[in-house]
């Protein structure tokens, strides 16, 4: 039981896409980090802002076009309604696996001590205010602040 003292690990995740399939990896990685006793924080920027925006979080879609793993020709995947269809199918599958929804995941993350930040520049670009974001978002910060926060952390871009 003699444990060797390791330096405290820290993970900084950058979530820059707003797709359902693109949001989960960041959230699950951060959660897994917290469960392993690793400090975690996520920086939501550009389309990733949708993941923490109150009006968008429940309607994240899956982009099949240009995704060779979707198994669907791009010309079909680009048809209207395909994104929401794919999102619906994916959500159903996740429900069967008892995977929490994005909203629940964010809540679990906040409760487990992960810190969530939104990008100030992206906020200005998309004309969003702090009130438009979910209450789990700790603060709106700049890229410079992000570097300060992520000092000594492993950075993962998703």
């Amino acid at each position: 039981m003699a444990t060797i003292a390791k330096p405290k690990r820290k993970i900084a995740l950058i979530c820059s896409h707003g797709g359902l399939d693109e949001a989960y990896p960041a959230l699950i990685l951060a959660n897994a980090a917290r469960q392993s006793g690793i400090d975690a924080f996520i920086f939501f920027t550009f389309w990733g802002l949708d993941v923490v925006t109150e009006s968008k979080v429940d309607h994240l879609h899956v982009n099949l076009a240009g995704n060779p793993s979707s198994g669907m020709p791009t010309i079909v995947a680009g048809l209207p309604g395909m994104e929401s269809l794919a999102a619906r199918m994916m959500k159903k599958q996740m429900e069967e696996l008892e995977l929490p929804t994005v909203r629940e995941m964010l809540q679990i993350l906040e409760e487990s001590g992960a810190e969530l930040y939104a990008c100030e520049l992206a906020m200005n670009m998309f004309k969003r205010k702090k009130e438009d974001l979910l209450p789990q978002v700790k603060d709106v910060i700049t890229a410079g602040d992000f570097y300060e926060l992520s000092e000594g952390a492993q950075v993962i871009f998703t």
Partner: peptide, 10 residues
């Protein structure tokens, strides 16, 4: 996480 601060499940 309050009761078992570091990696609760583990």
């Amino acid at each position: 996480y309050t009761m078992f601060p570091k990696a609760p499940a583990r």
